[in-house]
Amino acid sequence: MRYSTLGKTDIKVSEICLGSMTWGTQNTSSEGHAQIDHALDAGVTFMDTAEMYPVNPVRPETAGGTETIIGEYFARSGKRKDWVLATKIAGPGFFGPEEITPTSLENHLEASLKRLQTDYVDLYQLHWPNRGSYHFRQHWTFDPSQQPSKEQILDNMRAVTEKMAELQAAGKVRAFGASNESAWGMANWLRVAEETGGPRMETIQNEYSLLCRMYDNDLGEMAVHEKFTLLAYSCLGCGLLTGKYNGGTTIAEGTRLAINGNLGGRTSPQTWAATQAYVDVATKHGLDPTAMAIAWTLTRPFKVMPIIGGTSVEQLKKSIDGATLELSGDVLGDITAAYRANALPF
Rank of each mutant, 00 (worst) to 15 (best):
D122I: 06
E194S: 06
A338T: 05
T249S: 13
Q35W: 08
I335Q: 07
H33A: 12
L123F: 11
D143L: 07
W23M: 14
K88F: 01
T28V: 11
A86E: 00
H108K: 06
T336Q: 15
P97F: 08
I69W: 01
A63F: 03
M214V: 10
L298W: 07
K163P: 05
R300F: 03
A343T: 13
V192D: 08
V313G: 06
M201K: 00
M1T: 03
R191K: 13
S145Y: 06
L298T: 02
N107G: 12
R137N: 14
S234M: 12
L190E: 00
A274N: 04
D37A: 11
L40A: 09
E72L: 04
A169Q: 08
V331T: 10
S179Y: 07
G237A: 03
E151V: 14
R191F: 06
N246Q: 14
L231Y: 10
T28C: 04
G243E: 13
M222T: 06
L211H: 01
T267K: 05
T101V: 10
G333H: 13
W296F: 14
R256A: 02
G248N: 05
R200Y: 05
D330G: 02
R191Q: 14
G71D: 14
F302H: 14
L325E: 09
A63V: 07
T311I: 10
L327Y: 13
E99G: 10
G132Q: 08
A293E: 03
L219V: 03
T271I: 08
S14K: 07
E61C: 03
A111T: 13
E162L: 11
R2W: 00
A50H: 06
V224F: 02
S4K: 12
G32N: 12
L325Q: 13
A337S: 13
Y53M: 05
C235S: 15
D122H: 03
L85I: 03
V331E: 11
E162W: 02
S234Q: 08
L332M: 11
V173T: 07
G185N: 07
G265Q: 14
G198W: 01
S29W: 00
F95K: 02
D218H: 15
E110Y: 03
E326V: 09
